[in-house]
Design a protein around this nucleic acid. Structure first.
Length: 889
DNA sequence: GCGGACTGCTTACCT
DNA sequence: ACAGGTAAGCAGTCCGCG
């Protein structure tokens, strides 16, 4: 046993990995995990921690933190070849501060400021005030620590009052990042105690091409110089470790409580990025000799009889782990480990984890030495789910995400964890750890590269970036831009009082302003349909029409003639809006440079994958750029700006429809930024595209060519078959995740029939096959010939089960039955239930005899009808009656 | 006491 | 904790019905 572990630690064989390149691993290198475990003669917490050398090799800036004891900003740099993290403490005398419009003499009279124990000094300064388009004299109040500025009842911010203090609610680590112009995700080095940026090497060809997109000496040209290193420096390859734990709990269906941590940690598996791993297993003495777990060759294991020793072995590794990956480590694994360790008497300086209360009910687990990425939280980010991964996963368990992205599921545990033999548990634990690592390795380390790119663009460290939502990223990007240009960051209230509220009325009750147009679909089957759409419509509008919080309803009387259609608003003609500038540049670079190259087959796969990472990162910012402007919680919220964007969007699509009709092209359907055109000629298309670019200044592209489209009479519901035989299904019930599996499958069979239709003549036969299919499934329902799980309706419970007070939806009724039977149900869980003749039942409690056949037939009917009405088939006159015939016949 | 018309709530989708 | 617009199903309410 010991010998095996020793030889594993020495790990003589270098690991073969993929070829070098952007985001790729070096051709071969020593395993991070083996290197760490080999240092086992050291104590749990290494003597050299924290490591703040006078000089150090270049390292990627991973995180910007605050050292409370030393009252200094602290940077974590990661050198990938030594696989070690270095710290650097600020040496520039940078201190927390906020701004005020009081004069020096006025401030001296405010006791809460000058007599505050953290007060250091006041300095006169000046900032440009975008909202009023003028320079503003201000005073900067400097303090010794962040809490002196804000965060306590007696903070300086409170003594000044909100109307007289600015930039007082920006977290100090951010403030420091912006003032020092730091870009996390890029290389820095430490030389003679100073932090220096490492000049970035990147492709001169790419840089020249990108510069060429903009006029020299334009504001865009200046901005792009700032962005080139962010977009073009190759992402460092970052060796890393993943972790998963198992806890022996006697309760089935109940997750062990990470606060009380009352049950033993029975297994901990760690993996690095070279497929090397180790599993620590608890083997209680009263059991028989444990079997050897079946693990891959590069994976070692070690049995412990004492849980405390097992935890110390894990901590020995975590004290030396530069980047740790978990799946739900914030709220479970690391939280459990830290609390359990405390309970077992491990002294807290030896515990490598620091727990903090995050936003809402979330906990955050920081690594004292390195940085912890909780992949659950990153994948849970809606922008990542929708824009980076195009909604490929729709639920957030490790199982769902790895199935969707890796095509690899996990083995289900057969039994209660405390009853599973330790060797089997170890195998299961290893499997999850391995999947967690793999989630960052597929597609040339896409996820890690994406994180690095997003860190650079938003100027946020890895810890915050992977835990915050897109509005946070954009806020950070814009605050950075304000600080770089010495613009004062305005208060939300100032924007609102100067610009006012929204002036249009939304279609939906409770919404703030009018949104997009959806064209009434012409129901039926249409052959040769071309779909055109505006490339990034809203960002393009922001760029072309100069939309930004400061330019909408600006203060210059001479701009009032530059009006926005269907609104009382006008746009500045004298100054380029900051948001407009930034979003415009990002849009141009994505559309003109990175997107085409990400699809260019003449480039190597590695090159393409880098272009694609940048393209996807930029897309995330672009897609959210309009939304945040209209989001009340966003600190630069500006309803008039948001409704101007949608108003111009409506203008663009309606004018294009008019033009299409003038050109003799029939518009079959359209939604927000797209138009479905009936068999347009080449020349007509060219003219339409030219028109929108010339007259509307937005780019119109051919997006898709359908062999045919089946439009139902409902908006946002259609099925289209491309010329290559690919089927797009939008909005149809058969595709929704809450539709029972049997019906999703039946629907897919119908789609397959439709996919094969080549010409109008094929429809008669296709219709017959679809009718037969529907009848078969109805008959199968009558025979109750499906597993009951396939009849389950799976619906998410979005709130805590007891907070449904207005109505009690069916899934909540089912959830309450589960709770009565002793199961945990919390917000975000998916409840699977079936319909019975007497209400609903959770599928766990149901048998096939319980189901209400007629309710399921109604479901089949409404699902098929959405397609059948496009094909001109009436359900009642065909299937309904004939089914009765067969029933009585 | 029950069903239809209606409104409102909830979820899942589209752009 | 980015927006508004649409569909669907059900819960709950009101009203008529001798």
């Amino acid at each position: 046993m010991r010998d095996k572990l020793t030889s594993w630690m020495q790990g003589t064989k270098p690991v073969k990995t993929k070829p070098a390149g952007s985001g790729a691993s070096p051709a071969s290198r020593r395993s991070l995990l083996q290197t760490i475990v080999a240092s086992s003669n050291e104590s749990i917490r290494p003597e050299w921690y924290p490591r703040t050398p006078k000089s150090a090799l270049p390292g990627v800036l991973l995180n910007i933190e605050y050292d409370g004891q030393k009252a200094l900003a602290k940077l974590k740099l990661y050198n990938p070849s030594s696989m070690k993290v270095y710290e650097w403490l600020d040496n520039s005398e940078h201190h927390p501060y906020c701004l005020t419009d009081y004069s020096r003499s006025e401030i001296e009279k405010i006791k809460g400021v000058v007599e505050h124990k953290g007060f250091l000094k006041i300095e006169e300064t000046s900032k440009f005030y975008l909202l009023l388009d003028k320079e503003q004299q201000l005073v900067s109040i400097v303090a010794s620590d962040p809490l002196a500025i804000g965060g306590r009842r007696d903070s300086i911010r409170e003594a000044l009052g909100r109307e007289h203090s600015w930039e007082a609610d920006i977290r100090y680590t951010k403030c420091y990042t912006y003032d020092r112009a730091l870009t996390p995700g890029l290389y820095y080095k430490i030389k003679e105690g100073n932090l220096l940026p490492v000049p970035q090497k990147f492709s001169v060809q790419d840089a020249a091409k990108i510069r060429g997109l903009f006029k020299t000496e334009s504001e865009e040209f200046t901005l792009i110089e700032e962005y080139l290193p962010l977009f073009l420096s190759p992402a460092a390859y970052l060796p890393r470790i993943s972790l998963d734990i198992e806890v022996g709990s006697p309760h089935i269906d109940r997750i062990p409580d990470p606060v009380t941590a009352e049950h033993p940690v029975t297994a901990v598996a760690l993996s690095d990025d070279t497929e090397t791993g180790i599993v620590f297993i608890l083997h209680r003495s009263n059991e028989q000799d444990a079997k050897e777990p079946q693990l891959p060759e590069r994976v070692a294991h070690q049995y412990f009889t004492e849980e405390r020793q097992l935890l110390e072995a894990v901590f020995h590794i975590l004290w030396r782990t530069p980047i740790l990956l978990t799946f739900n480590g914030d709220n479970f694994d690391l939280r459990y480990l830290a609390n359990r360790a405390k309970k077992l008497g491990i002294p807290s300086p030896d515990i490598p984890i620091r727990l903090r209360q995050g936003l809402g009910s979330n906990f955050e687990a920081h690594l004292k030495y390195g940085v912890h990425i909780d992949l659950y939280r990153f994948f849970h980010n809606r922008s990542i789910q929708i824009y980076a991964f195009r909604n490929r996963y729709r639920e957030f368990r490790l199982e769902d995400i790895s199935q969707a992205l890796l095509g690899e599921g996990k083995r289900e545990l057969p039994d209660l964890i405390s009853r599973i033999p330790p060797d089997i548990l170890a195998e299961y634990c290893w499997q999850d750890t391995r999947l967690t690592m793999k989630l960052t390795q597929f597609d040339n380390n896409l996820v890690l590269s994406l994180i690095l790119l997003l860190m650079r663009v938003s100027h946020q460290g890895m810890h915050d970036l992977t835990r915050s939502a897109v509005s946070n990223w954009i806020r950070s990007l814009l605050y950075y831009a304000h600080r770089q240009r010495n613009y004062l960051i305005p208060h939300k209230e100032e924007i609102e009082s100067l610009k006012g509220k929204a002036k249009t009325e939304a279609v939906i009750k409770g919404r703030k302003y009018l949104g997009a147009i959806v064209v009434e679909p012409q129901a039926g089957v249409h052959f040769n349909v071309t779909v055109v759409d505006f490339a990034s419509l809203y960002p393009s509008i922001m760029k072309a029409y100069n939309i930004s919080y400061e330019t909408v309803r600006c203060s210059h009387p001479e701009c009032k003639g530059n009006t926005v259609p269907e609104t009382p608003h006008w746009i500045c003609t004298k100054r380029k809006g900051l948001t407009s500038l930034i979003i415009g540049v990002i849009r141009d670079v994505r559309v003109e440079h990175f997107k085409p190259r990400s699809k260019d087959k003449t480039l190597s796969e590695t090159q393409r994958s880098w272009y694609s990472v940048v393209e996807q990162a930029l897309k995330v910012f672009l897609n959210a750029s309009y939304g945040v402007v209209g989001a009340v919680h966003f600190p630069l919220y500006c309803a008039p700006a948001a409704e101007s964007i949608t108003a111009l969007g409506r203008y663009a699509i309606t004018e294009t429809i008019k033009q299409a009709e003038a050109l003799g092209v029939t518009v079959l359907y359209g939604d927000t930024d797209s138009l479905f055109l009936s068999n347009p000629g080449k020349e007509q298309l060219r003219k339409l595209i030219e028109y929108s670019e010339r007259e509307l200044r937005v780019e119109l592209d051919v997006e898709k060519e359908y062999r045919y489209v089946a439009l139902s009479s409902r908006k946002k519901n259609y099925l289209g078959v491309t010329k290559s035989g690919h089927v797009d299904i939008k909005g149809l019930t058969g595709k929704k995740r809450n539709t029972p599996l049997f019906l999703q499958r039946a629907f897919m069979q119908m789609v397959e029939i439709l996919r094969q239709v080549q010409s109008p003549g094929d429809f008669a036969a296709a219709k017959e096959r679809i009718l037969r299919l529907a009848r078969e499934h109805l008959a199968k329902l009558d025979r109750r010939d499906y597993p009951v799980e396939e009849l389950a309706i799976r619906m998410q419970i979005t709130k805590p089960p007891d907070s449904y007070v207005k109505t009690t939806p069916q899934h909540v009724k089912a959830a309450r039955q589960l709770i009565r039977a002793g199961r945990d149900v919390s917000a975000g869980d998916i409840i699977a239930f079936i319909k019975t003749t007497d209400g609903v039942k959770p599928v766990e409690h149901a048998s096939i005899q319980d189901i209400d056949i007629s309710k399921y037939k109604d479901l089949v009917k409404s699902t098929f009808e959405q397609v059948l009405d496009a094909l001109g088939i009436e359900w009642n006159e065909t299937i309904g009656i004939r089914t009765l015939d067969t029933f009585f016949g």
